[in-house]
Design a protein around this nucleic acid. Structure first.
Lengths: 229, 229
DNA sequence: AAGTGGTCTAGACCACAAA
DNA sequence: TTGTGGTCTAGACCACTTG
């Protein structure tokens, strides 16, 4: 530890002590004030460093309880969820889009559950295909609360995926990643063999407590979702 | 905006202006100093709020360039990657573990690539099964750099997954999520039908530039990975 | 060269939770 | 009740990057 004391350097030193077991799992580490004195910096600097480590899962912090090294650290991986068009273009492929259907339908039971609806309500049901180099890339099956995108909003040339990201600020929601089998319909739409293993994402979006949309994205075979930490 | 000005309240107001298009996509927002004056708080408070929004993808910040609202915000979803045992126990199921094999093997080509090895080297190859309520839950196929877990470390009763998380501090790595088909071997091990769609994760872990481990986790049918934002 | 965000400081008060 | 982290302030200097 030489030169100016930055919060990054405090973070690095704290991380070293954690992995070197100088601060063993389960133990309480010194208070912010003590560390600030030891490092010769302001408490705010130590605070920033330890807060950052806590966000990454390396430390547990509690008022009055102090700061502890977790027995079993919980790693965190962050995914950047971009617009599908950008995903395709980022792979160097030409993006294409085709709207398959767009109807107002009473929400079926699973959608009610996903969007926390007490009772079925009319939702806009969309199906659209995203293409990469003219080959099917991803099937988008979406339910939209018409209060957020009435019939004047057309999804012929812009996908609901893109329109929603551009036009609404979400406040919350959930993601669910899973594998599913291609049935006859999926195989036909995604131009793959029936029985192929497909990667899929279920996603719900809310604005405050208002349900905005629920969507299932089913990707063509071979899709891999990648992230770094 | 009443009461004390906290960084959370500044964040909320900024988010409101973004979603209300008072700060339209692509536009530059006022400087920190101006906002601090407007909200009647210190610049550090504004900084904390805007930095947080930038981390969430709602703003783009650059020195000298100022702060802008992105044209296409990139959502970020964070997954808590816990030990498989905790994952199972968190579902209220009884956890079980069975080591299937553990041999020193020269790393095959795909593993060399994943771990950025210039040439094949001897790695510890492990196969183990994680059980939930005595049913197969997840197959762990792992390659470990013996420098980090020599033969004295036994994985009979503790999984490599858990041992590594408890004993090493990672500095980086990658994740890859995909869907795969159950072949005869997978079907046998996971006690499912051949041809089932399985959710899988490829993961690599490094300490600085040192490769630690590469692993493929293949989950039994029906597994869903869930997160909230 | 100059403007903007990034960060540090020293001090203060507060909120929460453990004792 | 009390100790700990959470946060705010006012001021300062610095680093990056754009014009």
């Amino acid at each position: 530890m030489e030169g100016p004391v930055t919060w990054q350097s405090v973070r690095a030193e704290a991380l070293r002590r954690i992995s070197a077991r100088e601060w063993p799992p389960g133990s309480q580490i010194p208070h912010e004030a003590d560390l600030a004195a030891e490092f010769g910096c302001a408490r705010a600097t130590v605070n920033r460093a330890l807060r950052d480590l806590a966000e990454s899962g390396y430390l547990d912090r509690r008022r009055k309880g102090g700061t502890r090294v977790p027995l079993t650290p919980v790693r965190k991986a962050t995914f950047a969820i971009s617009i599908i068009r950008q995903d395709v273009e980022g792979r160097g492929q030409a993006y294409g889009y085709r709207l398959l259907s767009d109807e107002l339908t009473l929400s079926p039971e699973p959608v009610c559950t996903a969007l926390k609806l007490d009772a079925p309500m009319p939702l806009r049901a969309l199906k659209a295909l995203h293409l990469a180099d003219d080959r099917p890339f991803c099937l988008e099956c979406r339910w939209i609360n018409p209060a957020f995108a009435g019939p004047e909003v057309r999804f012929d040339s812009i996908s609901a995926n893109e329109w929603l990201v551009r036009n609404l600020a979400f406040s919350g929601g959930g993601f669910c990643f899973y594998a599913t089998l291609a049935d006859a319909e999926l195989a036909g739409l995604l131009d793959c063999a029936p029985g192929a293993a497909l990667f899929a994402i279920d996603r719900t979006t809310f604005s405050d407590a208002q349900p905005i949309t629920a969507v299932t994205l089913t990707y063509a075979p071979g899709y891999r979702m990648v992230t770094e930490i």
